[in-house]
């Protein structure tokens, strides 16, 4: 046994899309250690169970935000919680984005779907330190305009290039339509001096990382966030294995240099 949840109160609940909400949490008593961007928590829904969720916001007050999509019993339960409800949270777990690795380099952030949520604290971190980082590019792919999270916020980000593309536009959409990788042609970065951060569905991660590598971004500077079944988050349950990687310990964010081969083997 490792780690007992700590009570956190839901202080705000914001629906992001039809099936996704962002919960802002504040500790009821003592807060957990600070989370780094890309790290995750095990979030407990009373009577239903626990799931791993990345932090989508880290407050100086010890507050956290989690963006959760209702895809299973626990995530659906968490999405139904209301302000005032108490959840259990344990963490921080895993290796995050490690934005410091991009110091003095251009930054390319590529988000697919709800993958934008775990990238959000990273984006805010690098945008807050324009002197430390080179040109920051934020590339976002979504299913439809209605599935696009944090739309207002995205427009305010002072990135060198911000691109949003959707798979299927609606009547009002005036932006790009197509795969998120097409936006890479318009991003402003010097591939050999770039660190990329990629999160989204696995096929999107593979396509994006390959594209970035073919442009000359070194494979060990392409950071990708991976997902597998996770029960303990402490390296003891064996569920999150991806070949040699125990993702709760070596990940969820790993270098493409380490992920490329395991991801190329079907059903590994």
């Amino acid at each position: 046994m490792t780690g007992v949840p700590v009570p956190y109160r839901v202080v705000a609940r914001r629906p992001e899309t039809a099936d996704t909400v962002t919960l802002r949490l504040e500790p009821v008593g003592a807060a957990l250690e600070d989370f780094a961007p890309g790290q995750f928590a095990m979030v407990h829904c009373f009577g239903r169970g626990e799931i791993p969720v990345s932090v989508s916001s880290v407050q100086a007050t010890g507050g956290l935000a989690h963006t959760i999509r209702a895809v299973g019993a626990v995530s659906a339960g968490l999405c139904e919680t209301q302000a005032g409800d108490v959840l259990g949270v344990r963490g921080p777990y895993g290796v995050g984005w490690e934005p410091e690795r991009a110091r003095g380099r251009d930054v390319v952030v590529v988000a697919g779907g709800i993958g934008l949520a775990p990238l959000r604290p990273l984006i805010l971190r690098v945008l807050a330190e324009p002197v430390t980082y080179g040109r920051v590019n934020v590339l976002i792919g979504a299913r439809t305009p209605a599935d696009l999270m944090s739309r207002k916020e995205i427009e305010r980000w002072p990135a060198a290039y911000t691109g949003v593309t959707v798979d299927r536009p609606d009547q009002e959409w005036r932006g790009d339509v197509g795969l998120v990788t097409t936006l890479l042609d318009r991003a402003e970065f010097t591939p050999t001096n770039t660190v990329a951060f990629v999160c989204g569905p696995e096929p999107m991660i593979r396509a994006t990382a390959r594209d970035l590598a073919s442009r000359g971004v070194p494979r060990e500077r392409i950071r990708v966030s991976l997902e597998r079944n996770m029960r303990c988050a402490t390296g003891h349950c064996g569920h999150c294995q991806l070949g040699p990687l125990l993702l709760c310990q070596a990940g969820p964010v790993v270098d493409w240099a380490d992920a490329e081969h395991p991801l190329s083997v079907r059903e590994l």
Partner: peptide
């Protein structure tokens, strides 16, 4: 290829990646 990829609706309910 791009059209087929989009046809998969990867960002749909069961395609999304990363630790949610």
């Amino acid at each position: 290829q791009a059209a087929r990829t989009r046809l998969l609706d990867l960002y749909g309910p069961y395609g999304s990646g990363g630790v949610r």
